[in-house]
Structure formats: C-alpha cells, structure tokens
Amino acid sequence: MYLLAHQLGFRALNEKIRGTSEDVVIEECYGERFIGAGATGRTITINGTPGNALGAYLDGATIVVNGNAQDAVGDTMNDGKIIIHGNAGDALGYAMRGGKILVKGNAGYRTGIHMKEYQDKKPVIVVGGYVGSFLGEYLAGGLIIVLGLNTEECPVGNFTGTGMHGGEIFIRTQKMPKNLPKQVCHSPAEEADMDRIRDILSEFSETFNIGMDEILGKPFHRLTPNAKNPYKQLYTNN
C-alpha cells in the first residue's frame, strides 16, 4: 500500500496503516508523528522524515526510514526492527524492551535511556555515527553499540551510563570518554565480547553496506554497571 503522508496528516495516515496488514510504503513524509505505533509483523518503508515517536510500542513490525528520524524513535518498543538511513533525534529507544534499532548516522541525547531486557527479549541499538550526552542513562538491560564511523573523536557525549544498573554499552573508539559516572566500569572489549556482538555488527554492515573491515578498524570499549543495585545504601528506615 502506498500512502502520501503529507496529504493525509498523521491521524488519517496512521489509521490507514492500522487498517491494513500489508506492507506499507509512505512517501512525502514531512514530520508526521506516531507512524507505526504498536505495529506488528510487516514492513513500513518511509521515504522522507517521519516525526516524533516513530514506532512507539512497536510490536514486531519492521520500519525502514530513507531519511532522518526525529525524537523518541522506538519509545517502549517491544519487538521488531527500525532501520534509519540517516540521523535520529533525542531519546532514541527510550525504555525499549526488545527488537533492534539500527541508525546509519548520528543519534541525539539520551540514546537508549532506561532500556531493559526481559527473558528472551534483549533490545539492541547500533548507532553508526556519534551520540549526544546521557547515552544509556538508567540502562537496565540490553545492548548499545556506538561506532563513531564518521568521527576521530570519542563518539559519545558527557555522562554516559549515569545510573546504569544493567546491560552493556560498546563504544568503538581510540580514547575512552572522560567523566564517566561512578556507576559504570569500563574495559577494552575482549575477544569473547566481540564474538557476542559480531552478528549484530555484520547485520549493521550489510544493512548499510559498510565494510566489516572498517567497522572493526578501531578498538571497542565495553561499559558495564558496577552493581545491579546502585542505590542500595541510600536509605535509613524511619
């Protein structure tokens, strides 16, 4: 099904998407919001720039954006896949529980904030470029990889992993970020760690046609929480 987003407006557009179980191709997308909210098993292709909350509560569908995306992509996403052939805005994958988000370019502040994993569900975010501050804040589970393919600098902003109490973050960089908060431990990724992320890296490589040699051309650092109960000692019974 072909849909012209701008003509329809977000509400009618999304109603049409909900009304079909076919694959959908959306043209002329100029910031229409909430596309694919809660969508299940099919592919939604967007040629243009979808608005905020793309794929919120996504439940199994695949969304491909040929363009940039804005804020809150994949908010509370449960399952499925979002591929962005451009940049993404702030709060990418907020509280995401499952599925994958692959961003070719950069992502904004608070990427992967409060992601969590559950049973067989393990959310994954891979960002090809760099991200803003507060990457993986409150991270409770899942995997975030920042590749920084377009920069020589460390590809993350300040305060990466503040309040982190689960999950892991991989950063492809020569030098580690300064001012990491005390809830975070970091070490160079070991061979076993790299083996665990090799599949997702090759998926990223194939999706965006970027060579594995280039992706693996710099060392990876791995960030993990130093406790799963970071706030344990804070209280006194009154």
């Binding site: 804020d71 907020y94 608070r110 409060h114 559950y118 409770a140 589970g141 799963k228 109960n229």
Partner: peptide, 21 residues
C-alpha cells in the same frame, strides 16, 4: 513481580523522577 514488570529478577526497578521525553 519480574514477570509483570518485565525485568530480570533481583534488579532494581527504578522509575526516574521525570519522563525523559
């Protein structure tokens, strides 16, 4: 509780003060 909250057993369930979006 882990099943209804959909988080692993034994991990803290932290609700941040603001909604970060």
């Amino acid at each position: 509780i882990s099943r209804t909250r959909m988080i692993p057993e034994g991990t803290d369930a932290i609700s941040p003060a603001p909604h970060h979006d």
